[in-house]
Write a protein that binds this DNA or RNA. Structure first.
Length: 806
DNA sequence: AGCTGTGGCAGGGAGG
DNA sequence: CCTCCCTGCCAC
């Protein structure tokens, strides 16, 4: 116990090393080249310790060392530990008005767990809600209390990364780990040092394969294990087969098997459940998540599978072997060498994807007190909170409790003209919400230490520094490292606003989140007014950006830029407007839905009503071509396009089933869907009904986040789609059974998007199969509808200065 | 235990 | 028919 009292009382800190004053870069040089920490003694009464794994500068040796760890939690009332043996813990009162006023520190994990249960029991008896604040991950506890982070003084290439991919033979349908006759046939391994190896079922039993894989991983001793969908598939499958064959999956640096626990991750509106897994001394990175995270920003990936992503990034070699998933078992029987090539290609592409996409995660790990693997699989809120908690512990300050409530305000969106307009300039406020937060003294009410503005300011400074470095970088490697760095700062900076409005964040403040959004709205209104005053015409605005037609005397890019600079100069201190693009023409349809024609003749689409990935491909194509023709004012061709599309539907003239099938994502588990339908909380939906049917027929279970493709069969347009939906894979071009009446109706629904651009009479002429008197486009005019912005009260933003809350 | 937000459009089912 | 409500997808 002496060690604990020393730590808590004598050194004046919970740790000896945590003395940095930089809230972002923290502990910069205390532990260079630390690649992993691993807690030991988790289920024992012995003093808790961590094993530290460091990599020497020559990149070869792993030196391990042990360090003490003092498990801790925060408690709102120390009386909740009354009756718990005082010899088993030390507590320290914390400063400030926040509710979690005591830091309780233990020597062993057993004491920590016993105390946790004790306090929860006491709280339940006393009716105290949320009595504890916990940091759930032991490695994270260590990093927080020591102020250390991983990878300090390391570059991404210093990591030793191993890629893993398994191929599975299936007797029928989707491979199932519980079916003894299904088995692993190949385990492809590679690393970022040019090594690769195939563990092959032709020379080994499945049990021997698993043993060989374990031995190879231990021999190569990587810091990171990477794979595409490695959590949900490869490791999940491997673990089940290890149980079956009684092979210990001893791949930890301590020789022990991984720890598995259910987790989930969110990418924009999509949430995915997966079995997370921690391996002692190593990190697991799923490139599937990296790809999805990338797509949240870019939104133009054709799919999230390894092959689609590798193609998208240009990583697929010219002689890459492709084998369809349901063809693997056949290829294995007939051409096993081909499958070997395929599996090697898989790990090669996985390595490239990881190299390309995990840079910013790597550099985030240098700042955030979290193991690399956790940084890669958790959302931004958890990272922000870890930074705050680290600083509050360092300053021995009480922690706040998440406030209940919700944010109510968001961005301002409006459209002032529907129809065709041009030329178009796009201007946006640079980093709108971060700028507002910095310049209007935004801070969560409970952040008495003012970590929020300090951290935000520091990260912004670091980002600008890195961005400047990108421009002046001498080599491509240096440039790419600095770019990954500035991106990691950007990720954190952009999460600060979301964190204010997040109901589960300890440092949330809904009023402040609303204030940020409200100031953003007013700044945008001010920009709209300024453009109007300068003689420009605003077409559409969304949150932080404005699409407008510049005044007639502003011609050419230089003049447009000068105009935007003038607008920017008139904005309040710290708010800058940037010039972000110019376009020949724009088709404005609805809020958040428009098309832009670039000066090199390409079309850019925005909004789900024009480009939704769930729409049938023939419809998307029809809309795309129709907009192109509309912008060219070629209305005769528009009519011809409508007629031709109609004819193809009538003649079942499809390239393939993907032309008219819909693809939807299962947002919920099938079980949840069934329960909700039974409870009357939702109605039946085609995608889930098919998922149920497919699971029954093939034994292939559908997971939350899976996508399913289907088309509509049956007769007539008056059908319920969930009962007439068929799996796309079941469509037979020799006997096409898709519902022609339904798809003609769908075509007319796509055509109806163009209703606002014509008079009723003209619209019916163009989008109708009847040509009784021949079609003549010449009298038809394209209609634009204007609803100019209302007058705006100037100087409103001034009143939004924060009132003192201290 | 692990989990960022609001605004907006379209489509489908259910029930009047 | 129409409206209401829910879900999915998307912009930012």
């Amino acid at each position: 116990m002496r060690m604990i009292s020393e730590t808590v009382s004598n050194t004046g800190s919970t740790t000896g090393t945590n003395t940095s004053s930089d809230v972002a870069l923290y502990g910069a040089d205390s532990t260079p080249r630390l690649v992993a920490v691993h807690p030991i003694g988790l289920d024992q009464s012995t003093p808790a310790r961590v094993v530290l794994y460091t990599r020497t500068a020559d990149g070869q040796r792993i030196e391990t060392d042990e360090a003490p760890l003092y498990p801790f939690f925060f408690v709102s009332d120390i009386e909740l530990l009354a009756g718990f043996p005082q010899a088993r813990y030390r507590s320290q009162p914390l400063a400030g008005p926040n509710p979690y006023r005591h830091l309780v520190v233990f020597q062993s994990w057993a004491a920590y767990r016993d105390a946790l249960r004790h306090a929860e029991r006491m709280a339940a008896q006393a009716g105290v809600a949320h009595p504890l604040y916990l940091v759930p991950n032991p490695s994270q506890q260590y990093l927080i209390q020591t102020g250390r982070t991983l990878f300090k003084a390391m570059g991404f290439d210093d990591l030793h990364r191993l890629q893993l991919d398994i191929e599975v033979y299936s007797s029928h349908g989707f491979p199932q780990a519980t079916r003894p006759e299904d088995e692993i046939i190949l385990i492809a391994l590679s690393d970022n040092r040019g090594w690769r190896h195939m563990v092959d079922r032709r020379t080994l039993t499945e049990q021997e394969m698993l043993l060989a894989m374990v031995a190879l991983i231990q021999e190569r001793d990587p810091d990171v294990i990477e794979g595409h969908n490695i959590f949900a598939f490869d490791f999940a499958y491997i673990m089940q087969r290890c149980v079956l064959h009684r092979v210990p999956l001893a791949i930890g640096r301590d020789g022990r098997p991984p720890r598995v626990f259910p987790s989930s991750i969110r990418f924009a509106e999509r949430a995915i459940d997966f079995p997370a897994l921690e391996i002692a001394g190593r990190h697991v990175v799923d490139t599937y998540f990296l790809v999805m995270a990338f797509d949240v920003i870019k939104r133009d990936l054709p799919g999230y599978g390894l092959k689609a992503a590798a193609k998208y990034f240009g990583f697929a070699g010219p002689d890459r072997t492709y084998i369809a998933g349901d063809d693997i078992s056949r290829v294995w029987r007939e051409q096993p060498d081909l499958l070997v090539e395929y599996a090697f290609d898989d790990v090669t592409e996985t390595e490239r994807l990881a190299r390309h996409l995990s840079g910013s995660t790597f550099y985030l790990s240098q700042m955030v007190p979290m193991p690399y693997g956790q940084v890669a699989r958790t959302g931004p809120a958890a990272k922000i909170e870890a930074l705050f908690v680290r600083e509050y512990i360092r300053q021995k300050h009480a922690l706040p409790r998440a406030m209940q409530g919700t944010q109510t305000m968001g961005g301002y969106t409006d459209v002032f003209l529907t129809g065709i307009a041009g030329p178009i300039v796009y201007a946006d406020v640079e980093s709108l919400y971060p700028s507002i937060m910095l310049n209007y003294d935004v801070r969560p009410r409970q952040d008495s230490l003012r970590v929020f503005p300090e951290l935000l300011r520091r990260l912004t400074g670091l980002r600008l520094e890195a961005k400047r470095g990108v421009k002046s970088a001498a080599t491509e490697e240096a440039r790419s490292e600095l770019d990954a760095r500035q991106n990691s700062y950007k990720i954190l900076i952009n999460s600060f606003y979301g964190n204010l409005g997040f109901s589960l964040a300890a440092f949330n403040d809904f009023d402040e989140a609303d204030r940020v959004a409200r100031i953003g709205q007013q700044l945008l209104r001010r920009i709209i007014a300024a453009i109007g005053a300068a003689g420009g015409k605003v077409i559409e605005v969304d949150t932080d950006g404005v699409l407008f037609v510049p005044p007639a005397d502003v011609q050419g890019e230089a003049a447009e830029r000068a105009l935007v600079d003038t607008l920017s100069a008139a904005m309040p201190e710290g708010i800058r407007i940037g010039y972000d693009g110019r376009y020949q023409k724009m088709l404005s349809y609805k809020k958040k839905n428009y098309a832009l024609l670039t000066y090199d003749g390409r079309l850019k689409f925005k909004g789900s009503s024009l480009v939704s990935r769930s729409s049938e491909r023939f419809g998307r194509r029809f809309v795309r071509e129709a907009i192109q023709l509309l912008l060219n004012e070629d209305l005769a061709a528009l009519h011809v396009l409508y007629l031709a599309t109609r004819e193809r539907i009538l003649a079942h003239e499809w390239e393939d089933v993907d032309s008219f099938s819909k693809t939807e994502t299962l947002k919920e588990t099938v079980d949840r869907y069934v329960a909700d339908v039974r409870a009357g909380k939702r109605t039946r939906a085609a995608a889930y009904e098919l998922a149920i049917r497919r699971a029954e027929e093939t034994g292939q279970p559908m997971r939350k986040g899976d996508r399913i493709s289907f088309y509509i069969a049956g007769i007539g347009s008056q059908i319920t789609s969930f009962s007439e939906a068929r799996l796309a894979s079941q469509w037979n071009p020799e006997a096409p059974d898709e519902n022609t009446a339904y798809y003609l109706k769908r075509l007319d629904e796509f055509a109806r998007k163009f209703e606002p651009f014509f008079s009723d009479h003209d619209f019916r002429l163009i989008f109708s199969p009847e040509d009784l008197f021949g079609f003549d486009a010449s009298p038809i005019r394209i209609v634009s509808t204007e609803t100019p912005p209302a007058a705006f009260e100037q100087d409103e933003t001034v009143t939004l200065r924060r009132e003192s809350i201290d």
